[in-house]
C-alpha cells in the first residue's frame, strides 16, 4: 500500500467516527430523531431530493449566483492586483482603499445591497463578488510584486516591449499566487452565497435550509448543508486539477 493510500485511509477514520457517533447518539436515544435524524435517513433523503426538479432548481440558482459572483471577482481582482503591482500611482490609490475595505465585514453591506439592487440575483451576486474579491486581489498583488526581477530583464532583453511584459511575464509568473487566491475566493463564494440565500431569498440551497428550519424538519435542514459541502469539495477539486495542469512547469505545486 502506498503512503498516499495510507494517508487517505487514515483521513477517512475521523469521518467514519463522526458518522458512527452521530448514529450512536440516535440509536442509544441520547438525541430524539426530530432533533438529530439518523445519518442513513439524511443520506437517503439527499439522494431522493437530488432527483426532484424543485431541489435541482434550487441547486442551479445557488450555482448560478456562486459562479457569476466568483468570476466577476476573479476578473476584477486579477486586473486590479496586477495594475497595483505594475504602477506606483495605481498602487498608492488602491492600497489605502483595500486596507479599509478588506477587513470590513461585507455581509453587513447586504441590507444596503438589498435596498439598492433589490431582492433578486443582483444583490447576492454583488455580495459574493465583494467577499471573494479581496483574497484574489491581494494574492495577485503579492504574486505580481514578488516576480523575480531577472525574469522581467530576460524578457526585455529578448525584445519584449515593456507593455507586453505584463502579459508575457508578470501574469504567468504570478499564476501560482493568483490560483491560491482563487481557491480561497471560491470557498468564500460557497459560504457567502449560502448565507445570503438564508437571510433573504425565495430559492437556492440557503432558502431550503431556512424553510426546513421554520417547519422544524431536521432532516431537510441537513440536506442543503451536506449539498453545499459536497459542492465545495467538487469545485475545490476541479480548481485543484486546473491548478496542477496550469502550473505543471512550476516547482512544488
Amino acid at each position: 500500500m502506498t503512503v498516499r493510500a495510507q494517508d487517505l485511509l487514515l483521513g477517512l477514520v475521523p469521518l467514519a467516527l463522526v458518522i458512527a457517533l452521530w448514529q450512536a447518539l440516535v440509536s442509544f436515544g441520547y438525541a430524539p430523531a426530530t432533533l438529530l435524524p439518523p445519518p442513513g435517513l439524511v443520506f437517503r433523503r439527499l439522494a431522493q431530493q437530488l432527483t426532484t426538479l424543485t431541489f435541482e432548481q434550487d441547486v442551479a440558482a445557488t450555482l448560478f449566483r456562486l459562479f457569476a459572483g466568483f468570476l466577476i471577482a476573479v476578473v476584477l481582482g486579477v486586473t486590479i492586483g496586477i495594475a497595483a503591482a505594475a504602477s506606483p500611482l495605481i498602487n498608492s490609490a488602491v492600497r489605502p482603499v483595500v486596507r479599509v475595505l478588506a477587513p470590513l465585514p461585507k455581509v453587513a453591506l447586504y441590507p444596503a445591497l438589498l435596498l439598492l439592487l433589490g431582492f433578486g440575483h443582483g444583490s447576492k451576486i454583488t455580495l459574493v463578488t465583494a467577499d471573494a474579491l479581496f483574497p484574489i486581489l491581494l494574492s495577485t498583488y503579492y504574486g505580481a510584486s514578488t516576480v523575480e526581477q531577472k525574469l522581467v530583464w530576460s524578457a526585455l532583453a529578448a525584445g519584449t516591449p515593456p507593455r507586453e511584459v505584463l502579459f508575457k511575464v508578470i501574469l504567468p509568473a504570478a499564476a501560482p499566487s493568483i490560483l491560491t487566491g482563487c481557491r480561497i475566493g471560491l470557498v468564500i463564494s460557497c459560504i457567502v452565497v449560502f448565507l445570503a440565500e438564508m437571510i433573504t431569498s425565495t430559492d437556492g440551497l440557503g432558502h431550503v435550509l431556512v424553510t426546513a428550519a421554520r417547519t422544524f424538519q431536521a432532516v431537510d435542514m441537513f440536506v442543503p448543508l451536506i449539498t453545499i459541502s459536497l459542492l465545495g469539495l467538487i469545485l475545490n477539486g476541479a480548481l485543484g486539477a486546473l491548478r496542477s495542469y496550469l502550473l505543471r512547469g512550476f516547482p512544488e505545486v
Binding site: Q6, D7, L8, L10, G11, L12, V13, P14, L15, V18, V187, C190, I191, V192, F194, L195, M198, G206, L209, L225, I228, S229, L231, G232, L233, L235, N236
Partner: peptide, 18 residues
Amino acid sequence: SFFNPLLMVIYPVPKAAL
C-alpha cells in the same frame, strides 16, 4: 492526514448556516 479530510469537508460549510 488524520484531520485534513474532515477539515476539507467542514471548510465550505457556512458556519453561520449551522
